[in-house]
């Protein structure tokens, strides 16, 4: 009996030795995957259009390279396409990604998505625009309220603390637009000489924005215009250029594009408040990865904003921010 037992033990040891030998000689065959590698992150952008989201994607790609993961990117064609984006988001849950990075076009509409994601234990990182309708792992984006205040401060400086100012906002701007506007409206109170006299919305065609600005300028005399995103800024600047009112009517805008920078150089607008989408993309993937592996993630990561003027746009540190793509 004891002899039998020791025979069995000997054979087991022999088998263990053989398997160890095999795995030592052919290590590739059963190499365990690195902890983070092989994870899949779904990135859902607000729109496929524009440099901003392109830069977000580039930042995400940088993180992909650094951490060796898989990234799927999807985006609706239009920032207004809430249903389409929601549908994309819901579909992406089916592919069972380890985490989802979402730049949502709407807040409350995504409640069912967030519920579903929570049910499947897939962490969601909100970027660009905050989601309040459900549970998210983290929000990574700029403090748009502060940015609005900063825009107002810049405007007041340029006007010498006195003048009538109008806001031209993006009709589908979502929570970011609202926060920027709120920041502006709150900051106005600090400058007694400055009045907010008008506010208009326009769609994502800068032509429409130009028309809206034209309407405002036709209606009243303005000393300054605050435009809350790329299209509204271009529209406003073009209208000012058209009226040869550049620099006389101060224009402070948000975001950047080559047209806007050109107009900035022509002094049709005086300042742009620019986010760092590359960092946002990078950090979102980095934190999504952390959330997916169960480590704690900060509730909110603030991405800084730069105030770009004609003087500082070619500074070393701003060049890469404004012209991220080498062409």
């Amino acid at each position: 009996m004891a002899k039998h037992k020791s025979m069995i033990i000997s054979w087991l040891l022999f088998l263990v030795a053989i398997s160890l030998l095999y795995s030592a000689l052919y290590p590739g065959s059963e190499e365990p995957q690195q902890e983070e590698a092989g994870k899949t992150i779904q990135l859902i952008l607000r729109t496929s259009k524009g440099d901003y989201w392109k830069n977000v994607t580039m930042g995400a790609q940088a993180a992909v390279k650094e951490f060796g993961i898989t990234l799927h990117v999807s985006a609706p064609a239009d920032e207004g396409d809430i249903d389409g984006q929601l549908q994309t988001a819901m579909q992406s849950l089916e592919t069972k990604p380890d985490a989802i990075v979402l730049g949502a076009n709407a807040d409350s509409a995504f409640e069912p998505f967030l519920l579903e994601a929570a049910k499947r234990h897939i962490p969601v990182i909100a970027i660009d625009s905050l989601l309040t309708s459900g549970e998210i792992a983290s929000y990574i984006g700029a403090d748009n309220y502060l940015a609005g205040k900063e825009a107002m401060r810049e405007m007041a400086d340029r006007l010498g603390g006195k003048g009538d100012v109008a806001i031209i906002a993006f009709s589908k701007g979502g929570i970011n637009g609202k926060l920027r506007e709120k920041g502006i409206r709150d900051a106005v109170k600090d400058y007694p000489g400055v009045r907010l006299v008008d506010g208009q919305f326009c769609s994502d065609e800068y032509g429409a924005c130009q028309a809206a600005v034209r309407g405002m300028l036709d209606k009243q005399k303005l000393d300054g215009v605050l435009s809350l995103n790329t299209e509204t800024s271009i529209g406003a600047a073009l209208e000012l250029k058209h009226r040869l009112a550049g620099e006389k009517i101060k224009l402070v805008g948000f975001d950047s594009s080559s047209e806007l920078l050109e107009l900035l150089q022509e002094n049709q607008l005086q300042a742009l408040i620019v986010q760092n989408p590359f960092s946002m993309g990078y950090l979102s993937v980095k934190h999504a990865l952390e959330a997916a592996s169960g480590s704690s993630v900060p509730d909110q990561v603030e991405i800084g904003m730069e105030l770009i003027t004609e003087e500082n746009m070619f500074w070393l540190k701003n060049q890469k921010l404004l012209f991220p793509v080498v062409q």
Partner: peptide, 15 residues
């Protein structure tokens, strides 16, 4: 690989 090899060798030597 070496540590696996080592354990394997030790086992074989033992046997």
């Amino acid at each position: 690989s070496m540590s696996k090899l080592l354990i394997a060798l030790v086992l074989i030597v033992f046997l």
